[in-house]
Amino acid sequence: MANVTFKGNPITLLGNEVKVGDVAPEFTVLANDLSPVTVEDLKGNVTVISVIPSIDTGVCDAQTRRFNEEAAQLAGVRIVTISVDLPFAQKRWCGAAGIDNVQTLSDHRELSFGKAFGVAIEELRLLTRSVFVLDTDGKVVYTEYVPEATDHPNYEAAILAAKALV
């Protein structure tokens, strides 16, 4: 399992680490309208999954804005941001921030995504910062478990992995 810290302190990640070549595991999260979204719903598109602890923090805000900018230039690539923030808070934040190219999804109910992808932080009931790229069939082609959850991911590597598929 990935060794990850949060503000320099070791954390326990629940679930199994997802590796390149794996089929994306099953999960159910909620869209802003409270409708369920599963891994099956992501198939058919190259998908970048940007995972953040909370939309209302500086690095998470910057990460979501960065992927929103990238999404505007990536034809054929879907970008979703997943956190445990409530769907209502995600919708409010996106409206205030002018985010319209990234879909925010909430894992607040069961940590289904967090446990399936090995990113649920046991001590904080948040998700650790990570990025996954899935091909159109739901196969994992890129993973990054950011070693320090308060640091930025490698945006360029994730975008290159997605671009290579379209």
Rank of each mutant, 00 (worst) to 15 (best):
Asn3Ala: 15
Val4Ala: 13
Thr5Phe: 08
Lys7His: 12
Asn9Val: 12
Asn9Arg: 15
Pro10Cys: 15
Pro10Asn: 13
Asn16Arg: 14
Lys19Glu: 03
Val20Gln: 15
Val23Tyr: 08
Ala24Val: 02
Phe27Lys: 14
Phe27Met: 13
Ala31Lys: 14
Asp33Val: 11
Ser35Asn: 08
Val37Phe: 06
Thr38Asp: 01
Glu40Ala: 13
Lys43His: 01
Lys43Glu: 01
Gly44Tyr: 02
Val48Gln: 01
Val51Asp: 01
Ile52Ser: 02
Ile55Thr: 01
Val59Ala: 11
Ala62Ser: 10
Gln63Trp: 01
Gln63Gly: 01
Arg65Asn: 08
Arg66Ile: 00
Asn68Val: 09
Asn68Lys: 03
Leu74Gly: 08
Gly76Leu: 11
Gly76Lys: 14
Val77Gly: 07
Val77Ile: 14
Arg78Cys: 07
Ile79Gln: 09
Ile82Leu: 13
Asp85Ser: 13
Leu86Gln: 12
Pro87Thr: 15
Phe88Glu: 15
Phe88Lys: 14
Ala89Val: 15
Lys91Gly: 02
Trp93His: 15
Trp93Lys: 15
Ile99Tyr: 02
Val102Ala: 07
Asp107His: 12
Glu110Met: 12
Leu111Ser: 11
Gly114Thr: 02
Lys115Glu: 00
Phe117Ser: 01
Ile121Leu: 06
Glu123Val: 07
Leu124Met: 07
Arg125Lys: 11
Arg125Leu: 07
Leu126Gly: 00
Thr128Gln: 06
Val131Ile: 07
Val131Pro: 04
Phe132Arg: 12
Val133Met: 03
Leu134Ile: 00
Asp135Arg: 05
Asp135Phe: 04
Lys139Phe: 00
Glu144Val: 06
Tyr145Ser: 07
Tyr145His: 06
Pro147Arg: 14
Pro147Asn: 10
Ala149His: 06
Ala149Glu: 03
His152Ser: 14
Asn154Phe: 06
Asn154Pro: 05
Ala158Ser: 14
Ala158Cys: 09
Ala158Leu: 10
Ile159Pro: 00
Leu160Ala: 15
Ala161Leu: 14
Leu165Ala: 09
